[in-house]
């Protein structure tokens, strides 16, 4: 059983790419960034499709709206996941822009000292990540409450 599982993991580059187990914190944020990115793209396609019904006239729009509200709580959960994705992807994206375009949070080139701890994955980077996580989670909880309130549950 275990061997089969390992066989499978072996073959798939995509699965390996998304599997941060054993690696560093930044690789976890990378996985999450990719997954939330895919969610946002799917949402964007669906959203364009939704807006497209607006052009088909009021009847079509009413039908679409009715379809969405017939999902009940699932519509809200969907929106909540999308909100979370957008929050994380945005906030982490800002951090990456600081890293990539401005070379911030990386540390200067140094003479490496054993045991080698890369400055690009150092304290500053971790602080930035934890800050992002705290802010995103807080906003996400707030978004959840807001959505539930809209549903009239609270």
């Amino acid at each position: 059983m275990e061997k089969e599982k390992e066989e499978k993991r072996y073959k798939s580059g995509l699965l390996r790419s998304l599997r941060p187990y054993k690696f560093n914190l930044e690789r976890y944020t990378y996985t999450l960034h990719r997954i939330t990115g895919v969610i946002l793209i799917l949402y964007l396609i669906a959203h364009v499709f939704e807006i497209y019904h607006l052009a088909l006239g009021p009847v079509a729009w009413q039908q679409t709206m009715a379809l969405l509200s017939s999902l009940g709580i699932w519509e809200k959960i969907g929106l909540w996941i999308i909100a979370g994705s957008a929050l994380y992807h945005g906030a982490n994206g800002l951090r990456l822009i600081l890293n990539e375009a401005f070379g911030m949070l990386l540390g200067k080139p140094v003479l490496p000292e054993y045991p080698y701890t890369p400055t690009s994955l150092s304290r500053n980077q971790k602080i930035a990540i934890y800050t992002i996580v705290v802010i995103v989670v807080a906003l996400w909880i707030w978004a959840g409450i807001y959505l539930l309130w809209g549903l009239g549950i609270i």
Binding site: P20, N24, N99, P118, L121, Q125
Partner: peptide, 9 residues
Amino acid sequence: HFAGACSYV
């Protein structure tokens, strides 16, 4: 995409 795994290993 800056996963940093290269620097880690």
